[in-house]
Computed example of a mutant assay.
Amino acid sequence: MDLSATLNSIKTLSAKVDRVILFHSGAGKDSICLLNMMAPHFKEIVCVFMYIVKDLEHINRYILWAEKKYPNCRFIQTPHYAYYNNKKYGINGTEQIGYSEWNLSKINDKVKEQTEIEWSVMGFKKNDSLNRRLMLNSYPDSMTSEAGQKLYPLADWSNKEVLQYIRKNRLLEPLKYGNTGNTRSQGCDINDISFLLWCRNYYPGDLKKIIEEFPDTERKLFEYDHSQKQQLHAEQD
Rank of each mutant, 00 (worst) to 15 (best):
P71H: 05
I193V: 09
S9A: 12
R19Y: 03
L196N: 09
L136S: 03
S142H: 11
Y224P: 01
Y224V: 05
L172N: 13
F75K: 01
E95N: 01
G26W: 04
N127T: 07
V121A: 04
K126T: 03
P40K: 00
L22P: 00
L175H: 04
E173Y: 08
G123V: 09
R170T: 10
N137L: 01
I45W: 02
M135Q: 10
D206T: 09
T217G: 04
D30F: 02
G98M: 11
F49T: 03
K176A: 04
C73Y: 04
N191F: 13
L56V: 08
K106V: 03
L104E: 02
E161L: 07
C47P: 00
Y70N: 03
C73S: 15
E118N: 09
L171D: 06
K112S: 12
L35N: 12
C188G: 10
G148H: 15
K68S: 13
Y51K: 06
N137W: 00
I21T: 07
E113G: 03
H24M: 00
S14E: 04
K68Q: 14
D189M: 03
L35P: 00
G90W: 01
R74T: 07
N131G: 13
W65F: 04
K110R: 08
I97E: 07
I45R: 01
S227E: 03
Q149L: 10
E67T: 05
K68V: 10
K220G: 05
K126A: 06
L3K: 06
L136M: 06
E118Y: 13
K69F: 02
C73Q: 13
C188Q: 12
E212N: 15
S25T: 10
C33D: 13
V162R: 07
R170K: 12
T217Q: 12
Q114H: 05
G90I: 03
T12R: 08
I10P: 00
L196V: 07
I91S: 09
I107L: 12
K168W: 09
G98A: 14
N182K: 11
G178E: 01
S25N: 11
N92C: 08
Y84W: 13
E161G: 02
L171Q: 07
N108V: 14
H41L: 00
M143F: 07
Q149A: 13
Q77R: 07
I32M: 06
H24T: 00
L154V: 11
S185W: 04
V111G: 10
A39T: 02
D216T: 15
M37H: 04
M143L: 08
V111P: 01
N159T: 11
A155N: 09
S100W: 12
D128T: 05
V46D: 01
R133T: 04
H80S: 02
L64E: 15
L13F: 10
I21W: 01
S227M: 02
C33H: 07
R184K: 15
